[in-house]
Amino acid sequence: MNLATLALFLPACFALNMAPGPNNLLSISNATRYGLRTACVAGAGRLLAFAIMIALASAGLAVVLQTSELVFYAIKIIGAAYLFYLAYQLWSAAPQAEVEAQQASAGQWTLARQEFFVAAGNPKAILIFTAFLPQFVDPTADVGHQFAVLGALFLLLEWIAIGIYAYIGLHMRRWFAEPRGKRIFNRCCAGLLSAAASMLLMARRA
């Protein structure tokens, strides 16, 4: 893998990392409710899901999603249902309860698990890895090594994107400091998550 390939890969990859989506929205919401550090640590769940997807793409197992309509739609429906569940939790959350949870430093494992399931519940993500990463792989060289390098770079850039979105959420927390403001923000996030779930339900295999 040469420098010219990396020069093309890095900006294109970071554009994917920064694209608005359910996970990035979750990072904003988590930072707003629990703080920057908690949101960044919770992002490890997303990275784990993406690492598994990259490994599947590298092994060629993503073909299962491309050829099996049943598997694709099963994952899609489960993922959308989970997004609707998170939207309901945000919609009905009590601002005072969030303050108490933040003071107790609760929920890092729970939030990481949420990040994992939101990422894993999107079958289009693994198809993106299947379509995107191979464009930068030289078939005449060691494919496994190249996938490992590109995958590691993708995860590093994803971690940076998590931090950026969490930082945005941290500043938004100052705008929504009052309970009424927090309730409005939570319900806006709930609406956006519901919209993402609806879009996921309408997604079709390429």
Rank of each mutant, 00 (worst) to 15 (best):
I77L: 15
Y88V: 15
M1D: 00
C13K: 01
P123V: 09
A59I: 03
W175Q: 12
A166P: 02
Q103A: 14
L156H: 05
R33D: 13
A101D: 11
R174S: 06
E100F: 08
A104L: 12
M199S: 05
A4N: 10
A74K: 06
Q96H: 11
A49Y: 05
T140H: 09
L83C: 08
A119V: 02
Y88E: 13
C40H: 00
G43E: 02
P20H: 05
G21L: 11
N30E: 11
G79S: 04
A196P: 00
I162D: 08
I168T: 11
I52G: 09
A74L: 15
A196R: 00
L133D: 01
A195L: 15
V137N: 02
T130I: 00
V143L: 05
Y88S: 13
L26H: 04
G181E: 03
A125V: 13
S198G: 15
V118M: 03
Y165S: 04
M1V: 05
A57T: 10
A190K: 00
A19Y: 07
L61V: 13
F84A: 14
L200K: 02
P95D: 08
Q66S: 12
Q135P: 01
R113F: 13
P95H: 07
C188S: 14
A62K: 01
I75E: 05
L61T: 14
L155W: 08
A44T: 15
V71S: 12
I162G: 00
S198Q: 05
E115V: 01
F129T: 03
W175I: 11
A97M: 10
V63C: 04
L8F: 13
R183Q: 09
Q108L: 04
L200Y: 03
G163C: 10
V71N: 05
L157R: 03
R33K: 10
P22M: 05
G144A: 13
Q114R: 12
L111R: 07
Q146T: 09
L36G: 00
L48T: 15
S105N: 14
A120Q: 02
A4T: 12
I162H: 06
R204M: 10
R180A: 13
Q102P: 00
Y88K: 12
G35W: 05
I54W: 06
F132M: 10
I78K: 02
T110H: 13
